[in-house]
Nucleic acid binder design. Sequence first.
DNA 1: ACGGTTTTGACAACCGTTTTCATTCTGGCG
DNA 2: CGCCAGAATGAAAACGGTTGTCAAAACCGT
Lengths: 129, 129
Amino acid sequence: MTNRRDAVREILAHSEGFRSAQDIYAEMRAHGAKIGLTTVYRALQALADAGHIDVLRTDDGESVYRACVTGGHHHHLVCRRCGRTVEVAGPAVERWADAVGAEHGFTAITHTVEVFGTCPSCSAVASAS
Amino acid sequence: MTNRRDAVREILAHSEGFRSAQDIYAEMRAHGAKIGLTTVYRALQALADAGHIDVLRTDDGESVYRACVTGGHHHHLVCRRCGRTVEVAGPAVERWADAVGAEHGFTAITHTVEVFGTCPSCSAVASAS
DNA sequence: ACGGTTTTGACAACCGTTTTCATTCTGGCG
DNA sequence: CGCCAGAATGAAAACGGTTGTCAAAACCGT
């Protein structure tokens, strides 16, 4: 079993940035794979539950997924133009978040951090045009 | 035009944490206001465009809105149980985000940071039960 | 090969959001 | 005051992504 699941993981593995479910579905179809949208969603959920991939929501409400190289906790630096993603560690942020939470008496602190920017090649293109 | 817009802003003003559009709509209706869901959405969008309120997406895809006291850039510390929200400034994070972006050659850096935790009163309740 | 279980995928249901469009309000002008 | 143009409103329909349904297909140990 899990052929489909591995197929989905494959796609994510060789992708640079975040991919949407429908995006992945489209690619698999284009590749000739016989798979249903439902199964893609299920595979994605399973992978996310297993902690093998990251999930987050776009500003327009779409879920996007990414296979993370790093095992542990980390954040992303995402190019807002081409979607290229760099994984970054942020000890300073972790500490800050905990400190800020503690300062207000909050416990069990977690946090989400996403950094957006325009990557070198994209800013080159932008300034050239 | 004492817009419904102002009415919506009112609701947000006296709310502690983030409210969803439908939530606000329900409250206005309960309050006896004759207003349509459409108008609530439009008011919310207008306020967001004008920069008077914050918008962000829940993990389950709902948009939530909040009237921000502070004018400038800031982040939120949100109680994951009761939704109480504290606005926090994080110079350290701003600097970190910019630095991390610059380090990878990214320009026009922006970032989103949300800190979640259990607030003092809620953790009291939790441990009491 | 054979039942029982799991996985699959076409399709419909869902849900929050957005658009459409006819109606209502508003404010200026003759 | 009456009228019209433009903006605002809201009910209902459309939309898009996601999730549920359920029958058919694949898989498994026997």
